[in-house]
Design a protein around this nucleic acid. Structure first.
Lengths: 105, 105
DNA sequence: GGCTACACATAGCCTGTCTACATGTAGCCA
DNA sequence: TGGCTACATGTAGACAGGCTATGTGTAGCC
C-alpha cells in the first residue's frame, strides 16, 4: 500500500482501535497490525506524535502506569473522542462512496 | 470532505475519468464534479500540475487543439496508463478493505 | 465597457506522514 | 558478563503532494 494513501485517515484508525478499550502506544501499533492482517505497520514516529495531537484535540486522555518495570502511557477515548470517531466513520463512508463511484466499474 | 483525504488517490481519479475517452483539463474537472454529484470540486491548481505529472510518468499523452478560438490541451491514456489505472483500482480495493476493516462495524 | 464562462498555468504555503535517531528496561542465553 | 531481542516512548528534520492565490488570455452576452 502506498504510504501517502493513509493521509487524513490515521486519526480515524487510532480512534477506532481505542473504541471501547484502553491501550498504550505500542499496543495500538500491534492492534492495528492484527486488525489489518499485517497490512498496517505504522512506525512509532507516526503514531506517537499523532496520539499527542489527538490528546491536544481533546479526543484522548492518557495516564502513565508501570507494568513489570516498564512505563506506559495508556490512552482512552474521551466523550468528544467518541463523537469524533462517529463523525470519522460517517466521513469514511462518504469518502469511499465518492471515490469508489468515480473509479467505477 | 476533509481536504487531505484525497491524497494519494488523485492519480486514480484522473486516470479513471480518462478511461475510454479524451478530455481536456477543464472538462476533466467538470466530469469529476458530475460523476461525484458535486462532491469533488478540484481547483485548477490541483489538477493541471497533476496532469503534467502523469504525463511525465508516461501514463498520459496530450495534444493541443483549438475549439472556437480557445486552445485546449487534450489528454488521453497511454497503454501503460491503462495498466496504471488497473493497478490503482486494485490498490483502492485493498485500501478500502484494510481501513474499512479497522474502522469496523 | 464590463461581466461571466471557458481554459491553462505556476509559485509558494501548509501539514501530516515517514525516516532516522536517541533513550531506557526486562529477560533470555551462552 | 556481555550481547541480543522485545518492549516502550519520544523528537528532529525531510519530504511530498494537494491547496491558495495569482496571472494570462479568449469568447460571448448584455
Amino acid at each position: 500500500m502506498k504510504a501517502d494513501t493513509l493521509r487524513g485517515h490515521l486519526d480515524a484508525l487510532l480512534l477506532a482501535v481505542l473504541d471501547g478499550r484502553k491501550l498504550h502506544g505500542y499496543a495500538i501499533i500491534e492492534a492495528l497490525q492484527l486488525r489489518s492482517d499485517g497490512a498496517l505497520d505504522l512506525p512509532t514516529g507516526t503514531v506517537y506524535p499523532a496520539l499527542r495531537r489527538l490528546e491536544r484535540a481533546g479526543w484522548l486522555t492518557s495516564e502513565w502506569d508501570v507494568v513489570s518495570g516498564r512505563k506506559r502511557r495508556t490512552y482512552h477515548l474521551t466523550r468528544s473522542g467518541e463523537q469524533a470517531l462517529a463523525a470519522e466513520r460517517t466521513e469514511w463512508r462518504e469518502f469511499t462512496t465518492v471515490i469508489g463511484g468515480v473509479l467505477g466499474a
